[in-house]
Computed example of a mutant assay.
Amino acid sequence: MYSHDLFHTLHQLSRHLTNKLNEVLKSFGLYGAQWSVIFVLKSKGSLTQKELCEYLFVEAPPMTRTIQRLVKQGYVKQVPGKDKREKHIQLTEAALKEYPKWENAVSEHNQSLLKNFPEASQEQLLTLQSSWLKKLL
């Protein structure tokens, strides 16, 4: 059975991609975890911390730290919801202004990683990953 090899390889690849992404984002003062939050907020709009945690599969304590760092950097703000305990996380104008630079750097990085990976294989991998993720949810 290949399950150990499969998962070991997935973990190695994930760590490698995370480290490389962190290198790309370092010049902007960001880390991959912060980029994930920024990207989701840009894509989906305002979300609660709980919604961010659920979508990104991150537990509350590390998400709280990530959000606090982004607030301190001026890239997100917390807006009170209907319930006093609930806060919606939103991108600030500063983040929206910087977003194109971040997105461009990440996009160039992603393209460099995929340059020797045939497009048909990329599509197949995306299909497999999406299907697997849907079955896990």
Score class of each variant (00 low, 15 high):
117 F>H: 12
21 L>Y: 02
21 L>T: 04
109 H>I: 01
79 V>F: 13
70 L>Q: 05
127 T>N: 11
75 Y>T: 03
81 G>L: 09
85 R>Q: 12
61 P>Q: 12
93 E>T: 08
18 T>P: 00
76 V>L: 03
78 Q>D: 05
104 N>Y: 07
38 I>S: 01
10 L>A: 14
44 K>N: 04
7 F>P: 02
126 L>D: 08
19 N>V: 11
3 S>Q: 06
16 H>E: 06
103 E>K: 11
94 A>K: 11
33 A>K: 04
53 C>Y: 07
27 S>L: 11
8 H>Y: 10
59 E>S: 15
66 T>D: 03
11 H>T: 00
60 A>P: 13
110 N>A: 12
41 L>W: 00
71 V>Q: 10
107 S>T: 08
95 A>C: 10
38 I>N: 01
59 E>L: 15
6 L>E: 01
88 H>T: 06
14 S>D: 00
91 L>E: 01
23 E>Q: 15
96 L>N: 10
126 L>Q: 11
58 V>A: 06
61 P>D: 13
29 G>A: 05
51 E>L: 10
101 K>D: 07
14 S>C: 02
23 E>A: 13
85 R>K: 14
24 V>M: 09
101 K>F: 10
82 K>W: 10
118 P>M: 10
102 W>Q: 02
66 T>Q: 03
33 A>W: 01
103 E>S: 09
91 L>N: 02
41 L>A: 04
33 A>I: 08
49 Q>W: 04
31 Y>A: 04
24 V>H: 05
57 F>G: 01
23 E>N: 14
83 D>I: 15
48 T>I: 08
8 H>R: 10
15 R>C: 00
49 Q>A: 13
8 H>G: 03
113 L>E: 11
55 Y>K: 15
56 L>W: 02
97 K>P: 02
118 P>G: 08
27 S>M: 10
125 L>I: 09
56 L>C: 11
93 E>Y: 09
79 V>T: 14
18 T>S: 09
68 Q>F: 06
69 R>S: 14
106 V>E: 02
72 K>M: 10
69 R>K: 13
66 T>F: 02
42 K>E: 00
60 A>L: 14
3 S>Y: 13
12 Q>E: 01
3 S>R: 07
18 T>A: 05
85 R>W: 08
12 Q>D: 01
54 E>T: 09
41 L>K: 00
26 K>V: 11
77 K>N: 08
91 L>I: 06
31 Y>S: 09
53 C>V: 07
55 Y>G: 01
72 K>I: 06
20 K>I: 01
107 S>F: 07
96 L>F: 04
41 L>N: 00
37 V>N: 00
36 S>E: 12
83 D>Q: 15
76 V>N: 01
50 K>H: 07
122 Q>C: 15
78 Q>P: 05
86 E>W: 12
116 N>D: 10
30 L>I: 07
103 E>C: 06
80 P>V: 12
47 L>M: 14
124 Q>T: 13
65 R>N: 14
118 P>D: 07
87 K>L: 11
